[in-house]
């Protein structure tokens, strides 16, 4: 029998009258995935829900690559985050729209992102235009609600996939450098076999890598203005439900 009684909060450090848990002793910043990152990437969730994972990921990658190719800054910009598009000048945005139209991506993007473009003020990708979609506001808001609900939990597959896309887009636009000898995350496993151990390991990796996007760069890049705006508009867009 183990006679040593377990010490309550034994792994915590006592400072005055407080017991500080081990992680909190590292003095790391507090990032909220829901508050700060989710609004930045939910547009990709709309694409995935509209067209399925393969085509959704393809569309978001294409627009990100095109945007990256024409953007002016010599710093890497991750166009997986919607507020990154604010870095583009009006002229560059116009060019991007033309390119998307030429490649037959524009209508698909407009159709899928319509709820955000039409009803959310300050959505950074509004420049894509609403394409004159006919469906009612109610229909569009319900569509957005379903997507937000599906992607809300970052431990479930839809939520993991859009976080993975943040990493993927960074990689395909030359912003990701893996140290030699280290294995890159197997993003394919998230789509092909989400319940596998490989996928679970990858999911953990992408969650922490996506958090770093919010921690890097300036406040604007981390999207705090759009992120705040997205959530703050919720009560105006729709009523509470019980």
């Amino acid at each position: 029998m183990n006679n040593k009684k377990k010490i309550i909060l034994g792994d915590h450090k006592k400072v005055g009258s407080k017991f500080i848990p081990p992680m909190a002793q590292l003095e790391i910043s507090d990032i909220s995935t829901i508050n700060q990152i989710f609004p930045e990437i939910i547009w990709m969730g709309l694409l995935n829900d509209s067209y399925g994972y393969r085509e959704g990921i393809h569309l978001s990658s294409e627009i990100a690559k095109l945007a990256h190719a024409i953007h002016d800054s010599d710093k890497h910009v991750n166009f997986a985050l919607s507020s990154s598009y604010e870095y583009l000048s009006d002229e560059k945005k116009k060019t991007l729209v033309e390119e998307l139209e030429r490649n037959n991506y524009l209508v698909k993007l407009q159709k899928s992102l319509y709820p955000l473009i039409k009803y959310y003020e300050g959505f950074p990708m509004t420049f894509l235009g609403d394409g004159g979609i006919a469906e009612s506001k109610d229909f569009q808001i319900q569509k957005l609600k379903k997507t937000v609900e599906r992607h809300f939990n970052r431990y479930e597959t839809p939520g993991v996939i859009i976080l993975a896309n943040v990493v993927y887009i960074r990689a395909i636009t030359g912003g990701l450098h893996i140290v030699q000898g280290l294995e890159p995350p197997n993003l394919e496993s998230l789509v092909s076999d989400p319940e596998s151990d490989e996928a679970k390991k990858t999911a953990a990796q992408v969650r922490s890598m996506a958090m770093m996007e919010a921690m890097s760069g300036d406040k604007e890049k981390s999207g705090s203005a759009w992120s705040q705006s997205f959530w703050n508009q919720g009560l105006k867009i729709d009523k509470c439900e019980f």
Binding site: I34, I141, L144, K145, V148, E149, F152, W231, G234, L235, I237, D238, K239, C240, E241, F242
Partner: peptide, 14 residues
């Protein structure tokens, strides 16, 4: 407080 079930409201409590 109780939860609002609306995902657009971040499932806030009212």
């Amino acid at each position: 407080l109780k939860y609002c079930k609306n995902p657009l409201h971040k499932y806030h409590k009212i």
